[in-house]
Each structure stands twice: as structure tokens, then as C-alpha cells.
Amino acid sequence: MGYNNEGFSIYDLQLLIEGLGVSVWIFLVSTIIGLLLGCFIGLVRFYRIPILAQVLMVLSEFLKNSPVLVQLFLVYFGIPALFAIDISPFQAAVITLSGNTASFVAIIVISSIEAIDKRQLDAARSFAFSEVQIMKCVIFPQSLSLAMPLLVSLAINQLQVTSLISVIGVVDITRVGDIINQRTFEPFIVWPIIGLTYFILAKVIATVGSLLEEKYSAYRMVNKL
């Protein structure tokens, strides 16, 4: 019985496609959770809600200023050991990446709200707009158009960050590359293919992003920013 374990097979392609699915799925889930969480942190800090704003600020500063790899280890190895609970690699990946994305989104949210002329808010208040109405009709549409380019480049960056989850055992594109590389010993074929896969994914996000940017560019066009 000759079983050849070396060389490439058609199943490697299947593995790569499965890994691609896992990477894209984790990217989408963590980006959406990160966006919602980041908007929440940004608003809490913008309205200066006492205690909560300070706690969230310190937390997001440490999330921004430490390696994502260490954050992954903290969630995957540290939290189960301390609280005696089980966390799957997939859950750890989503928790870490969402938190990390949120801390960057919060900065973008705050800076794009603060970029709006304060006189507009005064004007809206003098017309007896409620705070919710001001947020919905004055701040949000303009901030969105300012934030869009920053959010797109954040998304491209976060796609690359997803590759780190391979280290805690999630079978994403990078892990698939590692598995195939360990078996075939063909690093010069495997890694360029993996790299190219990420490159194409990044270009897809950039294309979608520039469409979104264009769609929400009205405010920047008017103010020639």
C-alpha cells in the first residue's frame, strides 16, 4: 500500500477554501461587534458619562497599546484559568478581535464627532432639537462621511490582524498554510499563495470601502475636506 503524503493534492485546495471561509467569517463577525461596541464607547466618552467613560478609556488604551497576540493569549489561556470556564479558540478569537477593533473605532467615532462645527449644535438646540434628534439628524450623517475613509483603512488592517488567531488553533488561512507547509515542505509555493489570498481579500475590502466612501462623501464634498 503506497500512500503518498508528500506533494500537493486537490484536498489542499478544499482546505484553503475552508480556511478562507473561517477567516472571512471571523473578520465579519468581529468587525460588526467591534463597530457597535466602538460606537458605544465613543458615545459614552463623548457625553462624558462619569466613571464609565474613564474606565472604558483606560481599557481601550491598553487594548490599542499592547500586541493583539498577547491579548489573544490572555483571553484564550488566562480567562479560562481564572474563572474556570471553557472558551473555544473561535470564541476567544471573536472576543479579542471585537475588543481590539472597538478600541480603534471609538477613537474614530470621537474624532469625527468632534470635527463637526459646534455652532451647528447650538443652532439645533436653539430650535429645540432633543439630544437624540441632534445626534440623528445633525451629527450622525456628517460624522459618518468623515469617519468612512478611516473605518475602511481600519478594516483592511483588521483583516491582517485576523491571521494571528491561527496561533491559538483556529484553522484560518494562515493555519491552513502552516499545515500544508509542514506536510509538503514547499514554503516557496505555500506562503506566496497564502500571502496572495490575503492580498486579494484586502483589495476586495478596499474596493467595497471606496464605494461606501463615495456614497457617504457628501459632507466632505460640500466642505472641501
Binding site: V161, G177, D178, P187, P192, G195, K203
Partner: peptide, 11 residues
């Protein structure tokens, strides 16, 4: 700028 560092380091 578009390829993750971990892929480059493994390569």
C-alpha cells in the same frame, strides 16, 4: 502593507 506579518515571518 496588505500581507499579514505572520505570513511573511513564516515564509
Amino acid at each position: 502593507r496588505n500581507i499579514p506579518f505572520i505570513v511573511l515571518i513564516f515564509f
